[in-house]
Nucleic acid binder design. Structure first.
Length: 192
DNA sequence: CCCAGGATTGACT
DNA sequence: GTCAATCCTGGGA
């Protein structure tokens, strides 16, 4: 079969994976596995945000809210959106981060279902707010390391067919191709 | 101090 | 398809 591969070479080892541009990391995170307290699954959708990006929280420099974005590569950045949902990001180069937009559930299905009010499997983790709800990620996790419990991170090790498109829900820099998704996944938050 | 504006979701027409 | 919910940051007065 004619394949299918990540455009960037898989820099698979721990922090090295994140010591790069958010764009490169966002692409390579497709197919990686994220667990929180043993609950989670495969990352199937991401978006990249960088410091010179008007859509990024870090665009105007460091503030109290976005301080984690300027931490070590592999730091977790969690923020509240629209007064009601949490969004999960992984920090890359200083001031840059990858928003985790969707995962495919593979572990702890019952706990996710419980937290999400018994919704259909498709509605458990397809969206940045939904996946935080399903995994129990909150403000308390802001600034933590992705490489320490309760987080467990396993890099992608396979060739993946990665879709690229415009980011969702922003009003600035809307045309940048900084959204990435696993081709053919049933667990994308929206079509590409 | 005040308050506009969200990297969303779910309910409803 | 439209739209309200709900918190709280950060910029400006």
């Amino acid at each position: 079969m004619p394949h299918d591969q990540s455009a960037t070479s898989p820099a698979t080892e721990g922090p090295d994976l994140f010591s790069r541009s958010a764009e490169a990391v966002a692409r390579d995170l497709i197919g990686a596995t994220l667990l929180y307290d043993g609950v989670g699954g495969m990352i199937v959708e991401t978006e990249a945000y960088h410091p010179s990006d008007p859509a990024s929280h870090s665009f105007k420099g460091q503030t109290l809210r976005n301080a984690a974005m300027f931490g070590q590569p592999g730091t977790v950045y969690v923020y509240r959106i629209y007064g009601m949902h949490w969004c999960l990001n992984f920090v890359c180069e200083p001031g840059s981060a990858v928003l985790i937009r969707a995962i495919e559930p593979t572990a702890g299905f019952d706990r996710m279902s419980e937290r999400r009010g018994g919704l259909a499997p498709r509605l458990l983790t397809t969206g940045p707010g939904r996946l935080c709800s399903a995994l129990g990620i909150t403000r308390d996790d802001d600034g933590r390391s992705l490489f320490e419990l309760p987080f467990t991170f396993s890099p992608n090790v396979r060739a993946r067919d990665v879709l690229v498109g415009q980011r969702i829900g922003i009003t600035k820099a809307v045309d940048e191709p900084l959204r990435f998704g696993l081709a053919g996944s049933r667990f994308l938050s929206r079509k590409f």
